[in-house]
């Protein structure tokens, strides 16, 4: 039983990282992404492959974040010419392409995925036991929360907020909006990659389907439910949406109904999410 609870807790922490990393793009900068799970997947595969090639965990964890950022730049440089709904569609395409590539490359194991990914170990100490791994992931989440909140209050965060509110006026202020948008994607994808790495070494097995559109939309739902632009909201949103299916396991067949009903009710009664200040329509589907 404790093993099960710890398992749910670890997944909660990993999805908190994902939802917070997406919130950096969506909530703080107004860049809508429907393909965030692709970054999660890139991090997971990068880290798995690097460790299978014999790199130590510490190195592959950090490198997987960096590799994912590089993919973030590859996506950002051409796609940031468009914004809002158009950007959402571009990122949706990116997510689909990423899964297809993972599915068809030999090195990634195709549809079978990667197996036998070694578990994490830091400085020779294996992190195989669940409580230890939970503590490890939580501390990385803590670092992430800390750096993100510092960033949000800094000049960079202010530039992001300006871009989110009105990117033309941000240009009037002398903000190089292209640079700050790319920076945002780099940081957002870095953390998604780290979450991917932690996930790969936790399960030991990954396959492309985990990183598809379903997951992207799930992460976005966590952001919206928790509160667009809110750091604690990201964690609460992720926790609720990870916990809920577990709590509803007794109602196997009706699980989806409850899940959907919760989201619909939320959007009607509290469109700004649990902790947020902005409504979905402040970011999506706004006329510019």
């Amino acid at each position: 039983m404790t093993a099960y609870i710890l398992h749910v807790c670890i997944i909660m922490v990993l999805f908190s990282m994902l939802s917070l990393s997406l919130n950096i793009a969506v909530g703080m900068t107004g860049l809508v992404s429907l393909g965030h799970a692709a970054f999660f997947g890139i991090g997971a595969y990068a880290s798995g492959l690097m460790m299978l090639c014999g790199l130590p965990f510490e190195v592959s964890l950090v490198l997987s974040g960096i590799v994912t950022s590089v993919f973030g730049i590859i996506l950002a440089v051409p796609s940031l010419r468009v914004k809002d709904d158009y950007l959402a569609i571009v990122t949706l395409g990116f997510g689909i392409i990423a899964v297809i590539i993972l599915m068809n490359m030999d090195i990634t194991g195709g549809p079978d995925g990667l197996t036998g990914i070694p578990p994490a170990s830091v400085f020779g100490v294996a992190l195989t036991s669940k409580p230890v791994y939970f503590a490890f992931c939580s501390s990385i989440l803590a670092i992430m929360v800390l750096t993100t909140s510092r960033l949000k209050a800094s000049k960079v965060g202010r530039a992001w907020a300006a871009i989110r509110d009105n990117d033309t006026v941000a240009m009037f202020m002398g903000i190089n909006i292209y640079y700050y948008k790319v920076l945002c994607i780099v940081i957002s994808s870095f953390w998604a990659g780290i979450a991917g790495s932690l996930y790969a070494h936790y399960t030991g097995y990954i396959n492309p389907m985990t990183f598809g559109m379903q997951t992207s939309i799930m992460i976005l739902a966590m952001v919206v439910l928790g509160g667009i632009g809110s750091i604690p909201g990201s964690i609460i949103g992720a926790s609720v949406l990870v916990l809920l299916p577990e709590l509803l396991r007794g109602f196997e067949a009706h699980q989806g109904i409850f899940y959907g009903a919760l989201l619909v009710t939320m959007m009607v009664l509290r469109p700004q999410g649990i902790m947020g200040k902005m409504k979905v329509t402040d970011i999506f589907a706004r006329g510019s």
Binding site: D165, N166, K277, M278, D282
Partner: peptide, 8 residues
Amino acid sequence: GRRIFPRL
């Protein structure tokens, strides 16, 4: 059109 940043 006094385009201030309304949510800041």
